[in-house]
Amino acid sequence: MSGSIFDLYKVDTITPYARMLREIWMGKSLQPIVIAGGGKEARLYIDAARVLGADESSLDEIGIEVSRLNARLLSYAIGVDIVYPSIPTDLEEVSMAASTGMVVVAGGLHPGQSTNATSALIAERVNAKLFINATDVEGIYTSDPRVHRDARLLKRVSVNELLSMLGRERFNAGTYELMDIVALKIIQRSRIPTRVVKADPQVIKDVIDGYDLGTEIVSEE
């Protein structure tokens, strides 16, 4: 779940997502497992710590801590009656939480991993039927749509095509893109059905209902 939905000055922005996740769990016999991003607050802490001399590993740990706080906020909003009571901190804890059948909300797990890579690992571990990467844009474009007006939304793209696009990228803490190389490799090796969509409650619900929205990432082309 995009960190952009978490705003400490407008916490009511979390409510529609929490309501949607609660409805999915209660009405569709599905178990949402949600990984919260760090968002603006994480970037602020990371930038401050970088200025003060922290190394990249320490900056990653800060991002993880903030994402776990965001996860806790979302879990409160969903409702303690259906959410696993603690925020998992490793894959074993995620597996244990998932085995209860409750909604599971987590943040980051390990330094050096993006939220996307963490989400892909968790999807692999629990044998998820669908991995939805909810972001602040409608899907994966041929170029950054916020910069290039002629950017074209890709409805379907292979992992190999994305790996080619990302092969020369350099990642620092707090600057991960829509999908990184580690996440894509995990999606590819386990053939995880994956979609990148706008972080909008109705869009996410529609994708779960089978609508062809956002970008579908396929393991082979």
Rank of each mutant, 00 (worst) to 15 (best):
I192Q: 06
R43C: 04
S67C: 06
M26K: 14
V51H: 12
V80P: 15
S29P: 05
N133A: 09
I14Q: 03
S158D: 07
A97F: 01
V94P: 02
A18I: 01
G107C: 02
G108N: 03
M1I: 05
A183C: 03
L44G: 14
G107T: 00
V51A: 15
I87G: 01
A134C: 07
L121W: 07
E65D: 15
H148P: 11
S57W: 11
V196D: 12
S164A: 12
R43H: 10
T142P: 15
I62S: 01
R152Y: 10
T89E: 15
Q113D: 11
F171C: 05
N172C: 09
T194R: 06
T215H: 13
A71S: 15
V159Y: 00
E61W: 05
P145F: 02
D47I: 02
T100M: 00
L30Q: 01
A123I: 00
E23C: 06
A123E: 05
V203R: 03
I186R: 13
I140L: 15
W25H: 15
I208V: 14
A173P: 11
I5T: 02
D90C: 09
V137N: 12
S190N: 15
E65W: 06
D206Q: 09
D150W: 10
T215M: 05
R125C: 06
I33P: 04
V83K: 01
D60S: 05
Q188V: 10
A36R: 01
T135P: 09
E93N: 01
D144W: 10
F131P: 01
M26A: 14
S119D: 04
S114M: 09
E65G: 14
I217S: 07
M165T: 12
I82G: 00
T118K: 02
K185Q: 12
V182T: 10
V203G: 07
D212S: 12
R146W: 06
K28T: 07
V157I: 14
E138A: 14
H148I: 12
D212P: 05
F171N: 11
I140A: 08
L30F: 01
D212L: 06
D47T: 01
V137H: 11
S190A: 14
A18M: 03
E93F: 02
M179P: 09
D7N: 15
G63N: 07
R168D: 13
I140C: 11
N70R: 04
Y76C: 13
N172D: 15
L121P: 03
S114L: 08
P32E: 06
A134S: 08
I132V: 12
V207A: 02
I217C: 08
M102A: 04
L21G: 03
G167Q: 11
D200S: 05
L153F: 09
I78P: 00
T89W: 01
T118L: 02
K155C: 05
E221N: 14
D55C: 12
A199W: 09
R68A: 01
Y84L: 00
T142I: 14
W25M: 02
E93I: 04
Q202W: 09
R152P: 09
V83T: 10
A54Q: 12
F171P: 05
V207Q: 05
V34H: 00
D81F: 01
R195I: 07
P16Q: 08
A123Q: 07
I78D: 00
I204E: 09
L91E: 13
S114Q: 07
L21Y: 08
A123H: 00
D144Y: 10
E92T: 10
R19T: 14
I14D: 08
K10L: 07
V147R: 14
R170S: 14
P193M: 05
G112F: 07
R156I: 12
